[in-house]
Nucleic acid binder design. Structure first.
Lengths: 224, 224
DNA sequence: TATACTATTGGGGAAATCCCGTATCGCCGC
DNA sequence: GCGGCGATACGGGATTTCCCCAATAGTATA
């Protein structure tokens, strides 16, 4: 299995190349809701991590969501979640000396590539400064690979909204009412609503505000 | 002027370090609408570029908006815009052998770091493979520096929405109706609407869909 | 060619949202 | 202390949106 998984293969190569303890990738597409995780950790820690849903509170991932620059784990806030996860990790023989590189895609997709190695402070800084550039590239490559491979992403990346639908979504995001838009486009406000409904359906959204959020993150429209 | 500008300084250093012809950065925040450009090109090409509003049709920038991986200029589609810009660039003695590294921030902010050098195909590939990692890091650093320095970004990044308002915006983006949210939070749907109205006001939005769009791009809430 | 599917257009009426009002509570400054 | 201000809470009634319905034109597909 593992040796056939290209993602796992890539991470293993990365680990070997830079003599790291472990390399892990976690990514998600807020639209499809799909999350993707790959790691070189053993099955024991992996399953423990997943079973306890650590990915929901993992401070490295939360920080990555809001950051663009690499995040050294020793700069994370030592909150309750931090203690929980890193104490558990230590029990599995995993060091808390690590780094996470956030990656943001154009459609709201986020990911993080994490590496860790148990070593001295000095050794760690030396290592990082030497390979940070390569890691950055690797993170981009890995994220791109994962997102492109996600069929749901691919599907949602190309929701075939009609010209009218996108046009009307754009005006809606600009704060126009259905009546306004009808006047602007010289059609009935009833028709505007039909297109809006169709757009909601295609975006699998329950309400117009939700559809606007998704359309923006899909890059279909821009906020105004 | 130039020698005091830290952005220009950074790009100049980058150019010298890797012996490039030129280094340029362009970024924008879709919310504030502010665009930022910095480059090592001469004033003549820079002003020509700006006067003709090339940044609106520049294929390197357009591609960067939708890509995450570095974009080599020789892989761009040879459209009319491409011809216009690169032919003009050649007149200014600027080569079409270059590369743009896209950067996406967490709040919809996008940027691109471009480098170029007039040299042989072989030389170019050798150069790129050697420094791509460093460029990636430099791009992240530059983008972060620019966005953080933008006072509009900073201001818009901290509109003081109350806890309740953000909470309700988040549920709204999740597709819940006001009645639903009232039930969830155990308050009247009337009250929900008041908070929503207040949020619209603070975000300077005319409608709820517009407010959702802005809140998402401000990083106040996440699309669901 | 027949059929099926989508894009576009519209109406009637139910449902939700929005604007007006009011009220309480806590905080900050004069 | 007290008046102002923002956060929180609620209701009536006007406005808007939403869900049912239907029709036509174009395109794809069997």
């Amino acid at each position: 299995m593992a040796q056939l998984d290209p993602f796992r293969q890539f991470l293993d190569d990365l680990r070997n190349r830079f003599e790291l303890d472990h390399v892990a990738y976690a990514g998600m597409n807020p639209i499809s809701g799909a999350t993707h995780g790959h790691m070189t950790y053993g099955a024991d820690w992996t399953s423990h991590y997943l079973q306890n849903k650590y990915y929901e509170i993992d401070p490295t991932l939360l920080k990555a969501r809001h950051s663009i620059a690499p995040v050294d784990w020793n700069r994370l806030e030592r909150g309750a979640e931090f203690q929980t996860i890193f104490r558990a990790a230590r029990d599995f023989g995993i060091s808390d000396r690590g780094l996470t590189i956030p990656i943001h895609g154009p459609y709201g997709d986020v990911g993080g590539l994490s590496i860790n190695r148990d070593c001295s402070e000095r050794e760690w800084h030396l290592l990082i400064s030497g390979i940070i550039g390569d890691l950055q590239s690797a993170a981009v490559y890995m994220h791109d690979m994962v997102i492109q491979a996600d069929p749901l992403t691919r599907m949602l990346n190309t929701p075939s909204l009609s010209t009218r639908e996108i046009e009307i979504l754009q005006w809606t995001a600009a704060g126009k009412s259905q009546q306004d838009i009808g006047d602007i486009l010289s059609i009935s406000h009833r028709t505007v609503e039909v297109h809006l409904r169709s757009a909601r359906q295609k975006l699998n959204a329950l309400t117009t505000p939700q559809a606007i959020g998704r359309a923006i993150n899909l890059g279909l429209i821009y906020p105004r």
